[in-house]
Each structure stands twice: as structure tokens, then as C-alpha cells.
Design a protein around this nucleic acid. Structure first.
Length: 267
DNA sequence: CTGTTTACCTGGGGGC
DNA sequence: TGCCCCCAGGTAAACA
């Protein structure tokens, strides 16, 4: 589900709501989400206050006043939203934090793939985040260096690999290839760095402006849907917006891949 | 080392 | 309606 724009939208929303108040109760309803250590987890967070929230790629990083580091990954269907004191949890809610001001932070995840990790005191976030530079923080120089390191990699495989660039997932990889007018299987060495750089920044920032893409599960921190799904040019589309020909669907790196065979040439 | 499956889960949609 | 199969925004582990 959530890629960089969706995670960024959630982080911005939460920053306004959960920074400050102390956690009066932490409740885990499904232990595997927190690595099976639900008692430990509840104890660690109780009484803490979040002082900072940020993001690297699709990872959410939270820091408390007593230096506890909490790492959250939403994977496919994770939802992170704030709720009022009277909020009723449903069967897909796996973690709930209650703050002293009565508000709650709810983690809901239909497929249960997401993970909450408390970083041990002697470790750092980076020990638990296996990722390259963030797609919105990367410089053009860094991007060029990465292209030179993986010249024979297919463009979409390169974009999807989180250890190369962090934050781009299946939807935005397809949208980026489309905007570049390149077939997703074109080799990385054939891509102009400046164009790729500008298109990545443009598409991700535009999606953030529209609160991300809701295909089915993704919701903002206030549980509203994103709007960028209305602006997608090729992912999940039947016909190419430009030339009206039928959008092709193939598998690349095991992921469903949409492209226009007329507008995106493999040259 | 690299590229390809599989596993983790639930639910929605299509075909019959 | 119900059953079966496939598909889904992600990633780590197992496999060849």
C-alpha cells in the first residue's frame, strides 16, 4: 500500500497531533506486529512522549523524550491514524496508544504484514533500516553515481529496490517510467540522470500535494482518502491518456507493471 | 553473487 | 449463494 507520498502524508498529519502528550496506555492486540513481545512493548512506551517523527523511504521513525526509538513500517495494508477517546477498535486493529489528552493513535492492518520495532538502546534506526538514500532527499550526483553502479539493471527494478533508492513502490515506479517515456525494462545506463531526477521529484511531490494515492486501504492520519489516484497516468489505467492505445500489463521483478507500448519505447 | 520463488495474511472480484 | 482461483500498494528469507 503506502509508498513514499502516502507515508509522508501520514507523518505530516501525525506530527500535528501526537507530538507532546504522554502515552498513558499502550495496548497490543496482535503480538506479531511488535515482534511477539507485546508485554515488553507496552511497558516500554507507557509514560513516554513522542518528541520527533520523521520518515526514511517508507519507514516511519519516532523518538521519545526518554530516547526510545520506535520504527514503523506499514507494508501493504497498514493504517496509522488518530482517533478520539471513545474510538472502538475492530478486528483489524493491532496496536492502540492512548495519550493523556484522551486522543489515540490507532494501528490497523488487514493483512498484518506491518511491523513496529522498538530499537534497543545500544542500536540506531540505521541498524534496522536497510535502505539507500531517500527518493526525495537524494541529490542528482548521488543518483548519477547509483546509475553508474547498476548500469545493466532494468529501470523498474532499479526504482523498486529500496537498498538503492528508498521510497518508490509499484505505483510510482510505473508512473515515473511513463513520465520518462521509457519502457520499464530499459537499462539504467540509457536513462538521462537529470530527467530521471526531476521526474522522481515532480511525481512524488505532486502526489504528496494530493495526499497520496488511495486504491483501497490507504488512509491519511485523519482517515480520509488520498486524491492522487485520480491523477495516475498509467498505473491501473485501461488506456493511455496521451495516445488512447490499450495499456500493456506485464510482470517485472514479479510485480504487475503497466505501460504504454506506443509512448514508452525500449530504446 | 544474482535473479527468482515463496512466505507472511486477508479480502475483493471474476468465473462457474 | 458458494466455491475456487487469482490478484493486491512490501519485504525478507529460501532457493536455484
Amino acid at each position: 500500500m503506502p509508498e513514499l507520498p502516502e507515508v509522508e502524508t501520514i507523518v505530516r498529519g501525525l506530527r500535528k497531533n501526537i507530538i507532546g502528550p504522554s502515552i498513558s496506555e499502550a495496548k497490543v492486540y496482535f503480538a506479531p506486529i511488535v515482534g511477539g513481545k507485546n508485554r515488553f512493548f507496552e511497558k516500554q512506551l507507557k509514560g513516554q512522549k513522542f518528541t520527533k517523527i520523521s520518515r526514511h523511504g517508507k519507514y516511519i521513525k519516532l523518538i521519545t523524550n526518554q530516547g526510545k526509538n520506535l520504527l514503523i513500517h506499514l507494508r501493504m495494508t497498514g493504517q496509522l491514524f488518530t482517533a478520539l477517546a471513545n474510538h472502538q477498535v475492530d478486528k483489524h486493529t493491532h496496536v492502540a496508544l492512548t495519550f493523556q489528552n484522551g486522543k489515540k493513535l490507532i494501528y490497523r492492518d488487514v493483512r498484518k504484514f506491518g511491523r513496529w520495532t522498538i530499537i534497543p538502546d545500544n542500536k540506531d534506526f540505521s541498524d534496522y533500516i536497510n535502505a539507500g538514500p531517500d527518493a526525495l532527499a537524494i541529490t542528482q550526483i548521488e543518483l548519477k553515481n547509483l546509475q553508474q553502479r547498476y548500469p545493466k539493471m532494468k529501470l523498474k527494478v532499479f526504482l523498486l529496490n529500496q537498498t538503492i533508492i528508498a521510497g518508490i513502490g509499484n505505483i510510482y515506479a510505473d508512473e515515473i517510467c511513463y513520465a520518462l517515456k521509457k519502457h520499464p525494462e530499459v537499462l539504467v545506463e540509457q536513462i538521462d540522470t537529470q530527467k530521471l531526477y526531476q521526474i522522481i521529484q515532480h511525481i512524488l511531490n505532486l502526489s504528496i500535494k494530493h495526499q497520496g494515492t488511495t486504491i483501497s486501504d490507504y488512509r491519511t492520519s485523519s482517515r480520509s482518502k488520498g486524491n492522487f489516484q485520480n491523477l495516475l497516468k498509467v498505473y491501473g489505467q485501461k488506456k493511455c491518456q496521451k495516445c488512447k492505445s490499450v495499456v500493456s500489463k506485464i510482470k517485472v521483478a514479479g510485480r504487475s507493471t503497466h505501460f504504454c507500448s506506443q509512448c514508452q519505447k525500449p530504446c
